[in-house]
């Protein structure tokens, strides 16, 4: 399960608001896809953090 970091949550909210205000289909589509990338960043960041934890706590390397 991925949890949202603070910045990411704020970003998604703001992009959502912007999206609702746009009259052009293409702009709404762009912002919708932007949200996917923000979610992807969040997921990747969590994966890396977990991997870092795993590697730092690997006692065989101590």
């Amino acid at each position: 399960m991925t949890t949202l970091n603070e910045h990411c949550e704020w970003l998604l909210n703001e992009v959502d608001k912007l999206q609702q205000k746009q009259a052009h289909y293409e702009d709404r589509a762009f912002l919708l896809s932007l949200k996917s990338v923000i979610n992807e960043q969040n997921e990747r960041s969590e994966q890396i953090q977990n991997e870092l934890d795993g590697r730092l706590w690997n006692h065989t390397n101590w």
């Binding site: 990411c8 960043q41 990747r44």
Partner: peptide, 17 residues
């Protein structure tokens, strides 16, 4: 602000990497 925060997210991810 959205753009700036998005850029920060990119930088943070770069640093983690």
């Amino acid at each position: 602000l959205v753009l700036e925060t998005f850029r920060e997210q990119i930088e943070d991810l770069d640093q983690l990497n």
